[in-house]
Design a protein around this nucleic acid. Structure first.
Length: 378
RNA sequence: GCUGCGAUAGUUUAGCGGUUUAGAAUCCUCGGUUGUGGUCCGAGGGACCUGAGUUCGACUCUCAGUCGCGGCC
C-alpha cells in the first residue's frame, strides 16, 4: 500500500483541501474533475484540447465497455489502454458497476457477479469482481475501481443494505485479486473501493469503515447523481469524511454540475467524474458564470454576445450565441464540438479556480461569489 | 378578358358531409438529463382564405370574391 496521496493545503478539519495524487502517469493536482471517456474518447472533445487548452490531467474510461469492444487482446497489442487511446496522463477505469442500474444492460445479479448483456452483440457475459479487476489490470489504467452494486434510486433501506453488503464482499475479492496479480501492465496501478448505502448515513459510515479495513488507495462514494436530494448527498460526503483516514483521497462518483462540485469540494471531496457537462452540451444546456443557458431557445437567435463573457475559452472569445444557436438548431456537428468544448472548459476551469482559492485560503468567499452570480439549478 | 389548378398552425403538410376537442413534422415556451447510451426525453402553445348558399349538420359540397402558380386571347 503506497501513500499515493499527499495533502497540500487544508482548511478546517474535514473541509476543502488541495492535494497531489501520484499515479503511473503523473502527479495530479486535486480537487480535480475527470471528463468521461467511456469508449476511450471524451465525446466531441479531443485529447489535445483537454490536455493543451484545459490542462486536464486525468480522464476516466470504462473497463467493461473496452473489454467488450475493442477487447483486451487488441488493447494488449496496442500496449495498454493509455497507448491505444494516445493519452499519456492520468486515467481511471470504472469497473462497470454503474451499469447495474440500467435494466437493459443487466441480465442477472447474484453474489458471484453480474451477468451483462453485451450491447454490441446481445450475448450474455458474466462479470465477477475477480474478472472486473483482471480486466482493469490488463487495461493498465492508473486507478482501478472495484466492481460495486448500485441499486436504482428510491429503493428501501433493506435493498440498500443488501447492495452494500454485496459491494463490500466484492470489494474484498477485488482487493485480493488485485494484490495477487503480478502481471499488471501498470506497476503503479492503484485500487479504489466504493461505498454504497444510498442516503442512509449509518450504512454509508459502515461501508467506509469496512473499506478502511480492507485497505484501499482511495475511497469512492458511489450511487449519486441519479435522483437523490443534493442535501442528502452532502450529508453523506461529510459523514463519510469523518471515518475515512485523512490521507486517503475521496472520490465522489458521477457528480459534474458546477454547484454540486463546489459543494462537494466544500465537504472535503477530492475527485469527481461525470458525463453531465458533455451530455448537457450535446443537449444544448450550457454552463455560464451567470447560470445555465439553453442555447436552443429563440431568444438567442439574434444575440451577438458570447455564451459567457467571463469565460476565457476560445468559443467564448470568438463566437456569438446567435452563431452557436444557429449551428445547434441546424444540427451542424461543429455546434456540438464547440458547445462540448465550452462546457468541459468551464468545469475544468472551475476546478482550477477552486484549487487556487483553497491554496490562497479564500475558498468560501470564492464559493459564495460564484453561487451569487450563478442563478439556476444545476 | 377567359380558363385550369390550388389555398389547413410561423413553415411543410395529413384528413374527412357527423364517431376529429382537425393528425404529423418542424417551430415556440417550459421541465428533465450527472461512475455506457443516441444533437435525447417529457409537458404545453399554435391552423381549416373571405362571403353567400345547399344541408339536420360544411374545414369538407356549390357559387362569388381575394391571393398564388400555370395556360390562352
Amino acid at each position: 500500500m503506497c501513500s499515493c496521496f499527499e495533502i497540500k493545503v487544508k482548511g478546517a478539519k474535514f473541509g476543502p483541501r488541495t492535494g497531489l495524487l501520484s499515479t503511473g502517469h503523473g502527479v495530479i493536482s486535486s480537487p480535480f474533475f475527470m471528463p468521461v471517456a467511456t469508449k476511450g474518447a471524451v465525446k466531441f472533445v479531443t485529447h489535445e484540447e483537454l490536455q493543451m487548452d484545459m490542462g486536464v490531467e486525468c480522464l476516466i474510461s470504462n473497463a467493461f465497455i473496452n473489454y467488450l469492444n475493442p477487447g483486451l487482446s487488441l488493447i494488449a497489442k496496442a500496449g495498454g489502454l493509455h497507448k491505444f487511446m494516445g493519452w499519456d496522463k492520468g486515467l481511471f477505469t470504472d469497473s462497470g458497476g454503474f451499469q447495474l442500474i440500467l435494466d437493459h444492460f443487466v441480465h442477472k445479479i447474484s453474489d458471484k457477479g453480474v451477468v451483462f448483456r453485451n450491447p454490441f452483440d446481445k450475448s450474455l457475459e458474466l462479470v465477477s469482481p475477480e474478472k472486473a479487476i483482471l480486466i482493469e489490470n490488463a487495461l493498465g489504467s492508473d486507478v482501478a475501481m472495484c466492481l460495486d452494486h448500485q441499486p436504482v434510486f428510491g429503493k428501501s433501506r433493506t435493498d440498500y443494505l443488501d447492495s452494500l453488503i454485496r459491494t463490500i464482499e466484492w470489494a474484498e475479492v477485488c482487493k485480493k485479486t488485485f494484490d495477487k496479480n503480478e502481471n499488471k501492465i501498470n506497476k503503479k496501478q492503484l485500487l479504489f473501493g466504493i461505498t454504497q448505502g444510498g442516503v442512509h448515513i449509518d450504512l454509508r459510515v459502515k461501508a467506509a469503515q469496512a473499506l478502511n479495513e480492507i485497505g484501499f488507495d482511495g475511497i469512492a462514494i458511489g450511487g449519486f447523481g441519479i435522483g437523490e436530494a443534493q442535501r442528502d448527498m452532502y450529508n453523506v460526503i461529510s459523514a463519510s469524511k469523518k471515518v475515512i483516514p485523512e490521507h486517503k483521497p475521496v472520490y465522489v462518483m458521477g457528480i459534474g454540475s458546477p454547484l454540486e462540485l463546489l459543494n462537494a469540494v466544500g465537504c472535503g471531496a477530492d475527485i469527481f467524474d461525470s458525463a453531465y457537462p458533455t451530455r448537457m452540451a450535446r443537449h444544448g444546456l450550457i454552463f455560464t458564470h451567470s447560470g445555465p443557458l439553453k442555447i436552443d431557445r429563440g431568444v438567442h437567435k439574434q444575440s451577438f454576445v458570447p455564451l459567457d463573457n467571463e469565460c476565457g475559452c476560445f468559443v467564448c472569445k470568438k463566437y456569438s450565441r446567435a452563431y452557436l444557436h444557429h449551428l445547434y438548431k441546424t444540427h451542424e456537428q461543429n455546434g456540438l464540438l464547440l458547445l462540448s468544448y465550452h462546457n468541459t472548459f468551464f468545469v475544468t476551469n472551475l476546478m482550477k479556480n477552486i484549487r487556487t482559492s483553497i491554496n490562497e485560503g479564500t475558498f468560501w468567499e470564492f464559493k459564495k461569489d460564484f453561487e451569487k452570480k450563478y442563478v439556476g439549478k444545476s
